[in-house]
Design a protein around this nucleic acid. Sequence first.
DNA 1: CATATATCAGTCTGACTGACATGT
DNA 2: CACATGTCAGTCTGACTGATATAT
Lengths: 164, 164
Amino acid sequence: MNETPRPLPPRLLDVTTFVLARLGRIGRAEMGRVFAGHGLAHWHFAVLTALDDAAHTSQRELGARLKIDPSDLVDVLGVLEDAGLVVRERDPADRRRHVVALTPAGRTRLDQLSQEAAQADGALLTPLTEPERRAFEDQLRRLLAHHDPAAPFTPAADTPASPG
Amino acid sequence: MNETPRPLPPRLLDVTTFVLARLGRIGRAEMGRVFAGHGLAHWHFAVLTALDDAAHTSQRELGARLKIDPSDLVDVLGVLEDAGLVVRERDPADRRRHVVALTPAGRTRLDQLSQEAAQADGALLTPLTEPERRAFEDQLRRLLAHHDPAAPFTPAADTPASPG
DNA sequence: CATATATCAGTCTGACTGACATGT
DNA sequence: CACATGTCAGTCTGACTGATATAT
């Protein structure tokens, strides 16, 4: 019973980046468990969301949007294809390309995964009040938009408009 | 010039855990660059903070506090020892143990690293106003405390006390 | 002999690199 | 032939697993 968790060093907890990164890892791990319940992993979900957003996409385009290496994308798509969630066909217009698209089963699965992901988000943010949560998520998205040009900031619908 | 970064899929950005994890990775990478400027990495900094908090510690105790595997700790301490930042000696009271402690040079280096880490934090949180930043950091620490028992929440000194 | 500590060697994963076959 | 696309094989890292030498 002497397995009391030792506290982390204060000067480490002083570093916000450290706190953020550690919380990110916790959330990512939990999300991984959600996807694993469907025999999938993070990248599979990411690919499904990308295909939902842009119906027919080449693998190269998918890789560019998600910043997944094309070589790694091969296996990810293989799993999704074997599971019947996507189809991968030669582009008749340019036979170098593979055109990837969601199947109906893929769309259904994406909806399930999105719902479970939202529940996991809720569990992660459980200590926050509703207004706190809204502010926190808003700030998070602003920060990501500032540091990652691929993440445009779209203010929440019920957020008071900024001046302009 | 067609290298315009493609936006991430909206349904992916809807997942707060994803946004959080991605921002965590960005911050962690930047922090890694800071430490690399001193020939060190994340774990080296973490070990220094732990030794600052608890002056003389066995490797086992260090591993337990930082949740770094004892086997991985070996090399981390080796680097710090070679750099003259820590000393590692047999515990005369129990010769199985190594007692690790900061050297004066280690303390100086820790102070440098802490300062640079604070600057990196500032850069990461640059889009936030001062009150936003305080609230954001407070919420982040509450969330981590909720999900990681090793991270006790100590409210900031100038934070209004919660009801109770 | 059972346990604790530190160490070493090997594994597993995610992300990246380089080579290459196919097609434009 | 130069270039684009997708694929495969290998590397590098961080975190974990198992075995071992030393000491209690």
